[in-house]
């Protein structure tokens, strides 16, 4: 574990667990209202037809966002603590799975909306997975179901596999099952406050005149797909996760080089986000 005196300064790890708990519990409450076989209609009913369900959906969405941001902040804090981390290599590698799993879970949630943008995201997700040599097609079937089979598999992984793994790894990492009372309160109140004023997007069933962008946290990868081969969209995350994991093993110059490579990848991510937005605006 990270020693309190030398470890990260922010309490983002516990806060992340708070956001994760709010996300999972609000998701459990939403689950009976969602129908994978009529995805868009059921989300429209949640938004407009059922009292308070819109708030539950918004809390779920913003708590998930809070989890992602708190996890990133916790990671940045741990990396900034330099060689002072006391996390052994095994738990460190396991913990690096949190970020990709969080993104997969959130992408699953985005896809479950069932609108035009989410259908496009599902197609791109499948297309990218299928470029993985040998494993690609079966992995796409495992994660997303057979082509044209609807949202059943995505629902199962969003609500089951990814959420369960996230909680297990977060609990293992933080050595606690439940967040502290303070993290509960901050996560719940901040998600509910934002949910009350910022509407969660839900697009039309058919694409409109504008290009489809997908979730904001993947805009960089979407942008790369304009110019680079499709495999880039899984290679870049693999290199990012691998680079963060490798930080457990390297010191001195090797650590600096790894951090520089990670920084270059992130800069490319931001650059292609801008490129995509400019292309969309043009």
């Amino acid at each position: 574990m990270i020693e309190p005196a030398a470890g990260p300064r922010c309490r983002c790890g516990d806060l992340a667990l708070g956001f994760l708990a709010v996300t999972v519990l609000s998701g459990v409450a939403l689950a009976p209202l969602y129908r994978p076989e009529a995805a868009l209609e059921s989300v429209e009913a949640i938004e407009a037809g059922l009292p308070w369900a819109w708030l539950l959906r918004a809390v779920h969405g913003f708590a998930a966002l809070g989890f992602l941001l708190a996890t990133v902040a916790h990671l940045v804090d741990a990396v900034r603590a330099g060689g002072r981390e006391r996390l052994p290599a095994g738990p460190w590698w396991r913990s690096t799975l949190l970020l990709p799993l969080a993104v997969l879970a959130m992408l699953g949630g985005f896809v479950l909306r069932g609108d035009a943008e989410s259908l496009a995201a599902l197609a791109v997700w499948r297309g990218v997975l299928e470029t993985i040599p040998l494993l690609g097609a079966p992995l796409a079937t495992l994660l997303l179901g057979p082509p044209g089979a609807g949202f059943g598999a995505v629902t199962a992984h969003h609500a089951g596999t990814f959420s369960l793994l996230l909680w297990l790894i977060a609990a293992d990492h933080g050595r606690r099952m439940w967040p502290t009372g303070r993290s509960w309160a901050v996560a719940l109140l901040s998600s509910a406050a934002i949910a009350g004023v910022v509407p969660l997007p839900l697009g039309p069933a058919e694409p409109t005149g504008v290009g489809l962008l997908g979730p904001w946290y993947l805009l960089g990868l979407q942008g790369m797909l304009l110019d680079l081969p499709p495999a880039t969209a899984w290679l870049v995350p693999v290199f990012l996760a691998g680079g963060v994991g490798a930080l457990a093993h390297v010191q001195g110059r090797a650590r600096t080089a790894t951090l520089a490579a990670l920084g270059a990848l992130l800069a490319a991510w931001v650059g292609w986000t801008v490129r995509l937005l400019l292309a969309g605006a043009g």
Partner: peptide
């Protein structure tokens, strides 16, 4: 209408003729 890039559904583009993919253009 399945785009040959990554599988989004292309749509007819009456203004310019032909089809356009909404995902990466």
């Amino acid at each position: 209408l399945r785009c040959r890039h990554l599988g989004c559904r292309v749509r007819p583009d009456p203004a310019r003729g032909g089809f356009e993919c909404p995902c990466h253009g």
